[in-house]
Every structure is written in structure tokens, then in C-alpha cells.
Amino acid sequence: MTELSQASVSGLLLGAIYALVAVGLTLIFGVMDIVNFAHGDFLMAAMYITFFVWLYGRLDPLVSIPLAALAMAGFGILVYTVLIRRVLKGPVLSQIIVTFGLLVFMRGIAQLAFTANTRGIPDPLVGPVRLVIGGVVAGGAQLTAALGAIVCTVLVYLLLSRTELGSAINAVAQDADAARLMGIDPNRIHLLTWAVAGASVGVAGALLMNFFPVTPEIGAGFGLIAFVVVSMGGFGSLQGALIAGLAMGVIQDVVGLFQPAYGFAAIFALYLVIVMVRPQGLFGAR
């Protein structure tokens, strides 16, 4: 029983990170109908930034959160300006493969620059912290990550639902041409969307670096999970991403408890079942 509750708690903590990684992906899709296949590799970049800031600057990952967020927001803007803006009016195939090319490119660069070595931070500030309730242990790093993930997801949600900028983003998502007539520049909104998406994945990367080592291939696994979370929750839906992310984490850890090899397969299988029954995802409107 303790094992089961332990697996559920670990799963929830992991799931919160899944949700945060998925936020940027779902945001971009919701606003402009583009899937960023390189999203997992954005996370990888954020993790390397955090790692090297720690290695050379001796700054704890917690301190790097704003740095990684800022850097990744800038990177998001760069990617939008150089690549995405140019394929928005192009054929669907271009839209699908452009970020796919970016994924291959980023993975290659990371391998060239940092080699395939696994790099972790052995002594983060939150490392020694432990929370034990009724025999169930929650690591400090995981707790911080989950907490940060939830705070960040809620912030993005508030940004979208409570601010003027959020209304503008929603307007562009619904109808870019009509928004333009209302005096909103869709190009500027798209740019901001990529910046916010980049920043959120930057935060996720910094938080994850507290307990998860980085390799050039890390984007493959996390990126896949992000797609699955987003398609399951419904593309463009933040609540969907949060709930699906938490569910994925729990399922992965609980199934992994009984069948260690199949924890990962279980979430994909569940995803396939859900999208077959409900192609728009749990909270998607289509």
C-alpha cells in the first residue's frame, strides 16, 4: 500500500513537470495552429543553460530560473522570426517539417558541442530537503519542481484569462484577420506567444535540472510526453494540459511499479485509446 501511494505521489510530482513542459506547446498550438516538434529540445536547451550557469557561475538552478526563462524567451522569438513566420502562409507540409528540422538540428548541435555525456548537478540547494508524510517520501527537488510547475501554469492561465494581452492573444487565436481589423497586430501577438512559450519551457528546464541529468537526447522523451499530454488534454487547452500531465505522471509511475518496462508504453497506449474515442482530446474544442 505504501508502495502504491509512494508511486502515486512521485507520479503526481513528475506529472506537474510534464504539465509545465506541455504549457508552451499547447499555447503555440492554440494561438497559431502550429505544432513545435522541437519543443522537447527547447527543454534540453534550457537544461544545458542551467547546467553551465551552475558549472561556471556557481549559481544554483533556483537562481537560474529567471535566466533560463529569459534566454528561452529570446530563443522562442528568434525561432519565430527566422522560421515560423515564413511558413505560416505556406503548405501544411512545410509547417509540419520546419520544427522537425529544428529538432534534428538542435539535437545535432547539442551532441557536437556537449558530447553524449550525461550531466547532472550533484548538490542543488533543495537536494537535502525531504518531506515525509505517513511513510511517503517526497524529495525537495521534485517538490520544488512540482510547485514551480503549478505556479507557472497558473500564471500563464491568468495571463491569458485576466489581462488585456491575454484577450488580444485569444482574439488572434480565434481569428487573426478580424483581430487585425480591431487594431491588434497578429505578428506581434505571435511573437509574444513564442516568447511566453519559450519562457515557460525555460522555467521547466531549470526546475528539472535540480534532479534530472541532461543529455542531448533528453528532448526525445520529454518532447514525446509533451505531445501526448497536449493531444490528450486537447490542443490549446491549459487546464487539459495540467490534468493530462498529472494523470500521465501517475500512470507512468504506478504502471512502472508493477511492470517496470512498460511504464512509458502505458501512457502512449492510454493516449491512443483516448484520442481514438475523443479525437479532440479531453478539453479540446473542435
Binding site: 522560421l83 515564413r86 511558413v87 505556406g90 503548405p91 507540409l93 512545410s94 509547417q95 517539417i97 520546419v98 522537425f100 528540422g101 529544428l102 529538432l103 534534428v104 538540428f105 538542435m106 539535437r107 545535432g108 548541435i109 551532441q111 557536437l112 558530447t115 542531448p216
Partner: peptide, 23 residues
Amino acid sequence: GAGNALDLVIYGLLVMLIAVVEP
């Protein structure tokens, strides 16, 4: 060994170029 990654870099560049310039 490192060539394994350089080819990825070139592939990635080519695909992005094709998507943006000539689908």
C-alpha cells in the same frame, strides 16, 4: 564518432531551408 552529430546538424539545416525556401 562526432560525425554522427555533424550529419544531424546538416540534415536539420537542409530540412529547415527546404521548409522555408522551397517545399
